[in-house]
């Protein structure tokens, strides 16, 4: 890379940081453009980290104004969802996941699959997490075979009202995924056509992967030894 080019890139990154994305997008040379973009992302990350470190030291509450998405695909997708389904995001934009509210999840999911520019045709993974503090969370990892991009959707619900719309009719693989999450965490998936336990017997009590799970004492007359007893 010539020093001239380096100079140009640095200039463009400066511009990008100031909010002028058009001049970057106008670059004809693909290699140069991608170099500028990656440099811009790096600079932004550094700035963000510095801001976070500063925020930790000074006031915890920064201004929570509506931020435009960065170049990160995750933020772009989240922004698209927010545009299409207003008030569906439960968290600000970030680079790792999209936190959404459970209410419109079925509509969002079918849109994510059918929208040509997204086309998330594959539900790669779905699982649950006990967040503690009376909250449970379901997570969905989606991938598009066509565009080769992926996102992670997170939906947090409270234990007292652990209901999430089922996406089993959108991605058929979700059938067993959701049954397992129901089995282990007790999250109910409304609209699931075969909502039974997946692994444990039908008459099992409790949801084992919850943090406060207590093992039942007997099962059909078989005594289950207490976990704490034994040779510890």
């Amino acid at each position: 890379m010539s020093s001239e080019q380096e100079k140009l890139i640095a200039e463009l990154i400066e511009k990008g940081l100031a909010g002028d994305m058009d001049s970057i997008n106008a670059i004809e040379d693909r290699v140069l453009r991608s170099k500028v973009k990656s440099g811009l992302a790096k600079a932004k990350r550094a700035a963000k980290n510095a801001a976070v470190a500063a925020a930790k030291e000074s006031s915890p509450e920064e201004s929570s104004a509506e931020i435009m998405p960065s170049d990160h695909p995750n933020q772009k997708f989240a922004f698209m969802i927010e545009e299409k389904f207003p008030d569906s995001l439960a968290d600000t934009l970030n680079d790792t996941h999209i936190q959404i509210k459970p209410d419109q999840w079925f509509e969002i999911a079918s849109w994510l699959k059918s929208e040509p520019s997204l086309y998330f045709d594959s539900l790669q993974c779905h699982t649950g997490i006990d967040l503690g503090e009376n909250m449970l969370e379901a997570r969905y990892n989606l991938h598009s075979m066509k565009h080769d991009h992926k996102i992670e959707i997170r939906i947090a619900v409270s234990r007292d009202n652990a209901h999430i719309p089922s996406i089993e009719q959108i991605w058929r693989i979700g059938d067993w995924f959701e049954r397992e999450t129901y089995d282990m965490f007790g999250i109910f998936f409304d609209g699931h056509r075969d909502h039974r336990r997946m692994l444990l017997p039908e008459d099992w009590e409790g949801y084992p992967l919850r943090k406060d799970y207590e093992v039942q004492e007997t099962y059909h007359g078989i005594i289950i030894p207490k976990v704490k007893e034994g040779w510890e």
Binding site: P208, I222, I224, P225, V227, G230, W231, E232
Partner: peptide
């Protein structure tokens, strides 16, 4: 010890 779902010996 920690397998809540496992029978502790089939002789039960």
């Amino acid at each position: 010890q920690h397998g809540y779902h496992v029978l502790k010996g089939v002789d039960i």
